[in-house]
Simulated scan of single mutants.
Amino acid sequence: MLKFPEFALTCGLALLIAAPVEAAGDPEKGAVVFKKCAACHQVGDGAKNRIGPHLNELIGRTAGGLDGFKYSKAMQDAGAGGMVWDTETLDAYLESPRTAVKGTRMAFPGLKDADDRADAIAYLAEYSKQASAPAETKTAAAPAESPAPSTTVETAPGTAANQPIPTHGVLHLGRMATPDEVAAWDIDVRPDGVGLPAGKGTVSQGEVLFTERCASCHGDFGEGAGRWPVLAGGRDTLKNDRPEKTIGSYWPYLSTVYDYVRRAMPYGDARSLNDNEVYAITAYMLYLNDVVTDEAFELSRANFSDVRLPNEANFTDDTRKQEAHYAVPAEPCMRDCKADVTITSRARVLNVTPDGGNDDAATKVD
């Protein structure tokens, strides 16, 4: 497995444009669209490779051809096959990366709106010398003669203007959620397994999915790419100055892993995994953290609650309600609560005060 994801684009924009091109989008709007890509790509003065390659001088560039960046084999093969970035190839790639380059590790699902793609291409074209004249904007020509504006407002049946004024609640806003809407949000999973859907997945299946959908950010082995979170390792580091809080070293319950992956991952494409795929990825993360050691291990609702993470015993129930100041219901004291105030420690002693170069002055702050 490669440890350096190709990758041109967890954020969705990547490699780009080609030979003399005249972009038909709006560069200013494209700058806004590009924010979806900025976590992985840089463009402009001082741009550097990050999780994806920098996007300067991309018109006419061969796919997978930027020196100094480690691309996936799929992207290198695309370039070897003659793929060059121009408005056509870029538009197709941005619409559906995994369709345009099969095997790419791009986790971003794509820009489905054609105008967004055109705007993004126009924005990126401004950072390539091969781009031709300034980009045209998508402005339709005005008709030769415009009819005088009508002063009559027509309302279609069923629109808000025809609806009865609501009277429920204090502000008369909203409506009751439907059962289907509630079910779509009610997907949390408890540590005892309540809330788990039916399904199953093996470590081996999870490895394939993790490589395709997760490794561009988290590394092939959960080691983290760039500054993205580390998911594996970190055992016996919790007492260190900089502990590595991973699934194997810190997390208490497997249900948290399943719930988070199901609800929020992959980044930029949340809720795209089906239940079997979430089980498989969760099983693979157990394998990466040596919680299970058999590649044939299958995780399912039936055995889910049997799995225990190493740090579970170090989490305890919240007992704050049992403390003395909660015993008698009363308003909390907010001022003049003690007659005398004693300083028990100083920030400087705790090494959290920035060094100002004047220790005498630093001791006089109180």
Score class of each variant (00 low, 15 high):
K239Q: 14
H325F: 10
C217Y: 00
I281M: 11
F297G: 04
L231I: 13
T293K: 15
E223F: 05
Y287T: 01
F4I: 06
P20M: 01
S300Y: 08
V189L: 11
R242A: 11
Y267M: 13
T167Q: 07
D259T: 05
P53E: 15
A362V: 03
V189H: 06
P310Y: 02
C333M: 12
G356T: 13
A63H: 00
A362T: 08
R175H: 10
D317F: 01
M285T: 11
A118C: 01
L238D: 00
S345M: 03
V33T: 12
K200A: 15
R61C: 05
L171C: 00
M176H: 10
T159F: 02
I51D: 08
F4N: 12
A107S: 15
K112W: 05
H168S: 13
K338P: 00
D290I: 04
D336G: 01
H41F: 03
P191T: 03
D220C: 00
L238V: 00
Q163M: 14
E6G: 15
G233Q: 09
L173Y: 04
V278Y: 06
Y123I: 10
D355E: 10
A177F: 13
T151M: 08
E22I: 10
P179L: 08
N240A: 13
P252G: 08
D180L: 11
K35E: 15
I121Y: 05
K36M: 13
F210A: 07
Y127V: 03
D91T: 12
P266R: 07
L173S: 04
N276V: 08
